[in-house]
């Protein structure tokens, strides 16, 4: 990879200041960034590590919200969210593999917004709030297509606030090589209704499946969406699955998530 200057600030303010420099990029767990730098697809002049900032780490219940610091690893979420939000903890425990989960962070995943990543499904599927160093962004506004988010240059995620659903589950069909989601569904039932977010399937990245949400809001059961089909238009087609297959999996995984959420 190209060389760069490495800095590791200990406060959010210092990190934001460092990121204002030319060609500066944040580094969180690095589980996606470092491989892309090895392939020379990414060439930061300065890499600003966010893993030395204590206030960015932790899982904390605040009323009916679960607040997770951006630099919290998947492994810690899998462990510390289990009591308050088991659906989210289970999702975190399925990301990558154990070693990846020990480094990769929720903030890094959401900032990258890989179309096959797991966390975007939970954030969109609960209507979470993405808290940054300068503002709060609702999940519905945050995800703007594959690898595209509402984040501005130099803006860093500091925390994610998840509304805790009454019931939730994540059903992931694994792409066998990368172990990302070939297609996965996160389903969350709230007092106000049901949200369904799909990752891995669409060329536009994570999306909400409105028809399923409507059907499930009136009857939260797998049978309620048995006849629903998702359109294969704009679905990803690659050597792991056709667009039609992914569209089909959207239904299967959503039904399985509903069944698991109970």
């Amino acid at each position: 990879m190209y060389n760069f200057d490495f800095v590791k600030p200990s406060s959010i303010a210092d990190a934001v200041a460092a990121l204002a420099g030319e060609d500066a990029q944040p580094l969180s767990g690095g589980q996606t960034l470092i491989p892309s730098m090895k392939a020379r697809l990414n060439a930061p002049g300065t890499l600003v590590s966010l893993t030395g900032i204590p206030e960015l780490v932790g899982v904390c219940r605040e009323g009916d919200m679960l607040v997770i610091g951006a630099a919290t690893t998947h492994a810690q979420v899998a462990r510390d969210a289990a009591a308050d939000f088991p659906g989210l903890a289970a999702l975190a425990g399925q990301i990558g593999d154990p070693a990846v989960r020990n480094r990769g962070t929720i903030g890094g995943s959401l900032a990258n917004n890989d179309p096959s990543a797991c966390y975007p499904a939970a954030a969109l599927g609960t209507g979470a709030t993405i808290v940054t160093d300068r503002r709060e962004i609702g999940a519905d506004d945050y995800f703007q297509g594959m690898f595209t988010t509402a984040l501005e240059e130099g803006e860093i995620i500091t925390a994610v606030r998840f509304p805790i659903p009454q019931a939730s589950a994540y059903a992931k069909f694994v792409q066998p090589a990368s172990r990302f989601a070939l297609t996965a569904a996160f389903v969350a039932r709230f007092e106000s209704g049901v949200r369904v977010a799909i990752t891995g399937a669409s060329e536009n990245g994570v999306f909400r499946w409105a028809e399923a949400e409507a059907a499930l809001s009136s009857d939260f059961s797998a049978d309620a969406i048995a006849g629903l089909a998702c359109s294969p238009d704009e679905m990803i087609a690659d050597l792991h699955g056709t667009a039609a297959y992914r569209a089909h999996l959207v239904g299967v995984m959503t039904r399985r998530a509903v069944a698991a959420a109970g």
Binding site: F6, L27, G30, Q31, I34, P35, L47, S49, P98, A99, V100, N102, R103
Partner: peptide
């Protein structure tokens, strides 16, 4: 456990 090729 950490993948040492993916950490600086």
């Amino acid at each position: 456990a950490v993948k040492s090729c993916t950490a600086f």
